[in-house]
C-alpha cells in the first residue's frame, strides 16, 4: 500500500511525498480516533458524577479553589466533550477515506487523480480534527488558568464573606 513505486507516480518527488503523507494520515487517524473517543467518553461520565449528598456552598468553595478540580470542570463541560467527540469522528472519517482510497488503488489502479484527491481530503480532515483538538485544549487551559481565574477568585471571596458570622439577629 505504501510502496512508493506504485502509489502516486506523477513524479518521483510526488511519489515520495504522497507516501509520507499517506503514512502520516493513517497513523494519526488510527491513533487519534480511539484515544480522543475514549477521552471524550471518560470526560462525559465524569461530568455526570453527582455532588456528595450533603454538598453545600462550602463544598462548592472547596472545589472552586482547587485548580485541578476547576480544570476538570472545564474539560467535562458538554461543549468541550462535544468538540472532542467531533474531532474523534473526523479522525475516523479520515481513516475510512484512507481505506476507500486504498481499495480504489487496488481495484482501479489507473484512477490516479481520484486517489490523489482522496489523499488530500483525508489529510485535510486530519488537519481539521487536530486543529479542533488543539484549539479546544488551548481555550480550556487559558479559560481555566487565566481568564476565569479572577472571576472565580471573586466569587470564592464573596462566598467566604457570605458564610462568615451569619448567626446574628437582624438589627
Amino acid at each position: 500500500m505504501l510502496n512508493s513505486s506504485s502509489w502516486y507516480d506523477y513524479s518521483d518527488s510526488v511519489v515520495y511525498n504522497a507516501d509520507i503523507v499517506s503514512i502520516a494520515v493513517i497513523t494519526v487517524s488510527i491513533l487519534g480516533f480511539p484515544i480522543i473517543f475514549s477521552v471524550a467518553t471518560w470526560l462525559s461520565t465524569q461530568s455526570k458524577i453527582p455532588f456528595p449528598e450533603e454538598a453545600t456552598t462550602e463544598e462548592m468553595l472547596r472545589y472552586l479553589k482547587d485548580p485541578s478540580e476547576r480544570l476538570l470542570r472545564y474539560f467535562t463541560e458538554d461543549k468541550t466533550v462535544g468538540k472532542f467527540l467531533i474531532s474523534s469522528m473526523i479522525y475516523l472519517f479520515a481513516l475510512l477515506l484512507s481505506l476507500i482510497n486504498y481499495c480504489i488503488y487496488i481495484f482501479f489502479n489507473n484512477a490516479k487523480f481520484l486517489i490523489f484527491t482522496l489523499l488530500i481530503c483525508s489529510l485535510f480532515l486530519v488537519l481539521i480534527a487536530s486543529g479542533i483538538l488543539f484549539c479546544t485544549l488551548i481555550i480550556m487551559l487559558i479559560k481555566g488558568l487565566k481568564v476565569d481565574k479572577k472571576d472565580v477568585a471573586e466569587v470564592v471571596k464573596r462566598m467566604e464573606w457570605l458564610l462568615r458570622d451569619n448567626n446574628h439577629k437582624p438589627k
Binding site: 462548592m60 472552586l64 476547576r70 476565569d148 466569587v155
Partner: peptide, 8 residues
C-alpha cells in the same frame, strides 16, 4: 458568572 460556577 463563569460557566463552571453557573453549572455547579
Amino acid at each position: 458568572p463563569p460557566q463552571i460556577i453557573a453549572k455547579a
